[in-house]
């Protein structure tokens, strides 16, 4: 029997390299793209952009608030700044600047936050964003994208360049499991259906997409068939795909490398509560701060694993059955 995870292996390319290549490709055809860093060009991998476009690269030093405000001012003159920092500092530290200097006055700034959730690993709790999506979701008209692997950067960066507004790209910098083939298509705001079962739907983003596929394989061994959606765009949420999943599967598990409060799970629950409420279980970080450790350790520590998704799916299906028996 073929497995959903067949052929999926650790990418040979780092995510940051794929991101910067995508940005350079866009910048070759668009002179308005500017890179702004807060002393992380080495870490987030924008150095090749500096080499090719020295006049369009600005390393501010360690001053995220200023860097975001300056980006807003640059966008007022027609430029398209991409601001980079670790996710915690890109969002949490500069939140008022993103909110008021950028979004409130309808300017065009792209925020790129590296090291989502447990991928911050040995940088530890101070550097581990479990709340960045929640913060960015609160900003009216924001767009939030979290690629599952390197294949999506072309589509994500192209969208960010060609669509006006405050966009947040939540991006790993290291090698990650390669889910998609080269040339795979992505539409921002449209979930990718990676498996089409009807017993339960697992809606995942980022590194949890691979865990969702593993979980779907494990569930299939038990005769449970899961739909898997890669919800790479957390905002605007693909509510049509969520509603269809509720209608056709009747049980939903969300899986995110983020606090379940304010993140993908919350977004899905909000959408369903207003349309078609069905049992939901949320796999993600619950009332916890980050801490130091290897990524594998931290995934287990915070329950961000295929095993947790399987447990959540079984619980969710049993809740669905109870609900159905009451009808």
């Amino acid at each position: 029997m073929s497995r959903l995870t067949d052929g999926i292996a650790l990418d040979t390319k780092e995510m940051r390299a794929a991101y910067c290549e995508a940005l350079i490709r866009e910048a070759r055809n668009n002179g308005r793209i500017i890179v702004v860093d807060a002393d992380v060009s080495h870490s987030v991998g924008t150095e090749p952009f500096y080499k090719e476009f020295p006049g369009r690269s600005i390393n501010c030093g360690i001053m995220e608030a200023h860097a975001v405000g300056m980006s807003a001012g640059m966008s007022e003159t027609g430029l398209i700044p991409f601001f980079h920092a670790f996710g915690v500092f890109a969002t949490r530290r500069a939140f008022d600047q993103i909110f008021l200097s950028c979004a409130y006055q309808k300017l065009n700034v792209k925020i790129v936050g590296a090291d989502p959730g447990v991928t911050a690993a040995t940088n530890g709790g101070t550097h581990m964003p479990f709340e960045d999506i929640g913060l960015m979701r609160l900003i009216p008209n924001s767009v939030i994208i979290e690629p599952a692997d390197a294949a999506m950067y072309g589509a994500a960066v192209s969208y960010m360049v060609n669509n006006y507004g405050v966009h947040y790209l939540r991006t790993s910098r290291r090698k990650t499991m390669r889910i998609y083939p080269d040339g795979a298509e992505f539409v921002i705001g449209k979930a990718n259906k990676l498996a089409d079962g009807g017993d339960v739907c697992i809606i995942a983003s980022g590194i949890m997409v691979y865990e969702a596929l593993k979980a779907a394989d494990m569930l299939a061994d038990k005769g449970i068939y899961a739909r898997v959606l890669d919800m790479h765009t957390i905002k605007p949420l693909d509510t049509a795909a969520v509603e269809a999943a509720a209608r056709e599967c009747g049980a939903i598990v969300t899986a995110e490398n983020h606090n379940v409060t304010g993140g993908l799970g919350a977004a899905v629950c909000e959408a369903l509560a207003e349309t078609l409420p069905v049992p939901v279980e949320r796999v993600g970080v619950k009332e916890s701060f980050g801490e130091v450790g290897g990524q594998d350790y931290l995934q287990k520590r915070f329950g961000l694993t295929a095993e947790e998704i399987v447990k959540a799916a079984e619980k969710c299906i049993s809740r669905k059955k109870i609900q159905e028996s009451k009808k």
Partner: peptide
């Protein structure tokens, strides 16, 4: 926040 906005405009003009 205004000074950073101003710097951005000044940089945007220069660039």
């Amino acid at each position: 926040q205004g000074l950073s906005l101003g710097v951005g405009v000044a940089m945007g003009k220069k660039i």
